[in-house]
Simulated assay, not measured.
Amino acid sequence: MRRAILHIAQPSEAGVARVVTDLAAGQCANGDQVIVACPVTGTLWWTAARRGARVVQWDAVRSPGPALAREIAGVRRIVDMVRPDVVHLHSAKAGLAGRLAIRGRLPTVYQPHAWSFDAVSAALRTVAVQWERAGARWAHQVVCVSDGERAHGVAVGIRSRYTVVRNGVDLAWCGPPDASSREAARCRLGVRVTGPLAVCVARLCRQKGQDVLLDAWAELEKRMPQARLVLVGGGPDQSALAARASPTVGFAGAVADPRDWYIAADVVVLASRWEAGMALAPMEAMACSRPVVVTDVPGAREVLPPRHVPFAVVPLEDSAALAAAMARLLTDPVTSRALGEEAQAHIRCHYDVRRVVEHMYTVYGEARRVWATGRTA
């Protein structure tokens, strides 16, 4: 049965864009009519179109504010034009505007990609939690990417029909690098580094914790002055981070395809303060046979091979622990290489994005069934 699937997304870059693009590509390959509504800025607009989806403009900004009424009206207009069989809302803003616009009148799937109340100040947290509790009645399925993310929602009283669908990786895109590819990737990127290289692929913002990473790097470079760190991504904190970074830290800006950066690295690190289970970047890095260091956000341990946890997971906002974990891998290439190979096998065995696409059809079917009964959460 050919379905009309409408994805609505804000943000339209980084991990969310990759998740939506991979879903849209898989659904298009299965013969579905896939529509992606998103801002024209960011990478999602053209990557989804290149993979076969119909892309329509939805003007939306990240934070709620005066534009919300216009954003809600935009969702209504798009839904009336597309007439989808199911609507899949991605991230907090699409979840807000989309649920207020549709109000359960169509089968609706909401995927937070990290809960909204983790991204706001303490003063706004109560309001954000109250909204997520209220808005749950207009989602026929809520998709979390880890058991930890689901438990986090349940703990604050969000009652809904949850399904855990862990992120997947496009294994063809992450194809195993050959023995010389690290140097070849550095050459393609113009990175003239002969010593150890750590890479962070993430939006430059408070969530991703690059400020903590720079504190850790200041400690590490005292022990390893030949090591280099590159932050790959753009974002609102770029100027502030660049102002405090040492000369051993580089800024690559936002990139549409980070694969060469994973391959060029000796370790890939992410110092997040919160995540939707686990960010896509460490999974992609592991698929490229690179060891990772991540903070202990809810669900982060779920996608790691068990032997990796002592090497890979550090406490939140603990710059000393982060520095020690990076140094341990950067100074021990034998262990680092073994962990990377084990991580690659683990991701290829358990986290193929094609499984995500198939699982999501089950979610859509359940959303349609619940919608047809007229029940709410």
Rank of each mutant, 00 (worst) to 15 (best):
N30T: 11
T43K: 05
A29G: 10
P196L: 03
L89K: 07
Y361M: 14
V314M: 09
H90T: 05
D215F: 01
L270P: 12
V154T: 09
T21R: 11
P310A: 13
M1Y: 11
P11F: 10
C174Y: 00
R62L: 15
V293H: 05
Q130W: 15
N167T: 03
P66Y: 05
G253C: 08
V86S: 04
G253P: 00
R328L: 14
A134I: 08
H88C: 14
A281C: 09
K222C: 08
M81A: 13
R290N: 00
P176R: 01
P236M: 08
A179W: 02
V55K: 04
P291F: 00
A287W: 01
P305C: 03
H7A: 12
D318K: 04
A123M: 12
V34T: 06
C187I: 02
Q10N: 15
G168Q: 02
E149D: 09
L213N: 09
Y364I: 12
H346K: 06
I35V: 15
R355G: 13
G26M: 04
V356E: 10
L100M: 13
V61C: 15
R182W: 01
A53F: 12
G157P: 04
W217L: 08
L68R: 10
C144Q: 08
R259A: 00
V16K: 11
V55C: 02
R18G: 00
L96H: 01
G235W: 05
S146H: 06
Q210W: 10
Q238N: 10
A184D: 12
I347M: 13
A240S: 15
G175W: 00
P305R: 10
V120H: 11
V268M: 02
D318Q: 04
R150I: 03
R375S: 11
M278V: 07
R166K: 11
D237F: 15
A324W: 10
S12P: 12
V370E: 07
H350A: 14
E366N: 12
D296G: 08
D257P: 02
E132Q: 03
P306S: 14
G15Q: 10
E71D: 13
A242Q: 15
F251T: 12
G374P: 05
R99T: 06
W173D: 05
A185Y: 00
L44K: 03
V145S: 13
A122D: 15
E366D: 11
S91Q: 10
M1P: 14
V293A: 01
L220Y: 04
A14I: 04
A327F: 06
E13I: 08
D80H: 11
G153F: 07
P305G: 01
A136Y: 07
E221A: 02
Y361K: 15
A343P: 02
V293E: 03
P64E: 08
H152D: 14
Q33M: 11
T21W: 00
C38S: 10
A123V: 13
A49R: 11
L171W: 02
G250K: 00
A155F: 07
C38R: 03
R203H: 09
A60H: 09
